[in-house]
């Protein structure tokens, strides 16, 4: 299924409000990755028109983006983003060999895995495929920060438990939890053993309404 056709993709990619929000969330997600102090190789899942990728490029990183929408990738190409782009459905499992990436980000994409008109077990199978393949393609100790808009607590639980079953440790960082508008969910994950003692970073805006 393609979620953005050419017309929708153009509209979406040209909306300055969306661009601003997506860029800010990308910057926050990259901050939460807490990357080592050298240029990294990073995967962007659901890269869309390449907004997060541009933030990564600006910070000196090299990235690869995957997206299910060929139209969105077309927009990314027309914007001359610097990452390599692949047309792919993350629910089929990522196609990278083990230990490829230093880190991964995903902005407003993973909820698609739950939103489809598919049987419950199929959604769970796709989530599992996605997280298992993500775990595998990260270096040991590599981080993944996944921002998405959960529909409800059950969906949060379903997504995070698929991640934990796949070997990740971590949990949610909720920025501006008291604000209906600014509230953002980031699932912060570490592809490492429990001995690595990964603790999720602190949330922002805890006192703000």
């Amino acid at each position: 299924e393609i979620y953005y056709n050419d017309t929708e993709a153009k509209k979406y990619a040209g909306n300055s409000r969306i661009i601003e929000i997506q860029t800010a969330m990308s910057e926050r997600a990259i901050e939460l990755l807490n990357l080592p102090n050298h240029p990294c190789y990073i995967l962007d899942i659901g890269c869309g028109s390449g907004l997060s990728g541009e933030v990564l490029s600006d910070q000196g990183h090299t990235w690869v983006g995957v997206d299910i929408s060929a139209s969105m990738l077309g927009v990314a190409v027309s914007r001359e983003v610097e990452g390599d782009l692949f047309n792919h459905d993350m629910g089929q499992g990522l196609f990278f060999r083990a230990g490829t990436f230093d880190a991964a980000i995903s902005i407003s994409a993973v909820q698609w895995l739950c939103n489809q008109d598919q049987a419950h077990h199929n959604v769970q199978r796709r989530l599992r495929k996605f997280f298992q393949s993500l775990y595998k393609c990260l270096v040991r100790g590599g981080k993944a920060v996944i921002q998405f808009y959960p529909e409800n607590g059950q969906q949060m639980e379903m997504i995070s438990s698929a991640a934990m079953i796949s070997g990740f440790s971590g949990g949610f960082v909720v920025d501006y939890p008291n604000s209906t508008k600014a509230k953002k969910y980031f699932l912060c994950l570490c592809a490492g053993s429990a001995e690595m003692n990964y603790t999720v970073p602190a949330a922002k805006g805890l006192d703000e309404k």
């Binding site: 190789y41 690869v64 610097e82 390599d84 782009l85 499992g93 990522l94 196609f95 990278f96 060999r97």
Partner: peptide, 15 residues
Amino acid sequence: FFSMRLLSANTIVCI
């Protein structure tokens, strides 16, 4: 201008 580079080709497996 940009498209698949050999670095990413070096990471791909058949799934």
